[in-house]
């Protein structure tokens, strides 16, 4: 990568002219009309926008959880490319694998499974990606990685606890550990501090910054300019479009 000029390098994750319309009964509500952005490997990108501007929708489409509009045969709703490959063309199976291997989601409301313990929540993506036959042989390795992460995030004493026994900050740290369980290429964070007080939110951002320093690519959407400042680069989502050309 060092000898190739950065301008030519393929972005890790790229959205091009993405359109998304929600249908509420008979009314069509356009959310994204032609949003484009690109993320380089190892970059921390913040997408700012007011609430209802379609930030979360953009993030879901980037992560393969939602799909852009399909107008005609040639995807007029735009395209999302991961390492140059259009994820719209992936089969359901391949898309599941994409979410499992390449993407880590962090949500505003943590979204932990209440029936599982902290460590079980943290290994969930690894479990999901496992075939039962191989599970036995990889079990301890998966658990160790999850425990390592949780200990690094200061949750070593909370492994057996249930999510409801944790504070908001602790829950979000478990959620980040879960997002990182399969060493994803990109972490997609949707208002990760939106439900936390300033101090705790700051700790979460410090933690993300630390992971970023270790090489993690992050796309974070937020409405809080103060939080956006922590990123390498900031884009604005206004009227369903990203301000400024996708810059590489």
């Amino acid at each position: 990568m060092s000898d190739a000029p950065a301008v030519v390098a393929t972005p890790l994750l790229e959205a091009q002219d993405v359109r998304k319309t929600y249908r509420l009964g008979a009314i069509e509500v356009p959310v994204l009309h032609g949003a484009s952005l690109a993320v380089r490997e190892g970059e921390w990108l913040a997408v700012m926008g007011s609430s209802g501007s379609g930030k979360s929708t953009l993030l879901h489409i980037l992560g393969g959880l939602d799909r852009a509009d399909r107008v005609g045969r040639n995807a007029d709703g735009g395209e999302v490319r991961f390492r140059g490959r259009a994820i719209e063309r992936l089969s359901n199976r391949a898309l599941d694998r994409y979410r499992n291997r390449e993407i880590g989601f962090v949500f505003q409301f943590y979204h932990l499974l209440p029936e599982l313990s902290v460590v079980e929540n943290a290994v969930l993506p690894a479990l999901v990606g496992q075939v039962p036959l191989l599970w036995r042989s990889r079990r301890s390795e998966i658990r160790e990685r999850a425990i390592d992460l949780l200990e690094r995030f200061g949750l070593g004493h909370r492994l057996k606890h249930r999510p409801r026994e944790l504070s908001g900050g602790e829950r979000q740290r478990v959620a980040i550990a879960r997002a990182l369980a399969n060493r994803p290429a990109v972490l997609l964070a949707d208002e990760p501090t939106g439900n936390l007080d300033r101090k705790t939110g700051g700790e979460i951002l410090d933690l993300l910054a630390e992971e970023h320093r270790r090489g993690l690519t992050i796309v974070m959407v937020t409405h809080d300019a103060g939080i956006g400042e922590r990123a390498d680069r900031t884009l604005w989502l206004r009227d369903g479009r990203v301000d400024g050309a996708p810059e590489i």
Binding site: N92, D96, F105, P125, V128
Partner: peptide, 16 residues
Amino acid sequence: TRDIGILRAVGASRSG
């Protein structure tokens, strides 16, 4: 329902 969304987000398939 929410658990199902979470599981799908971490890559669980429909058949799963």
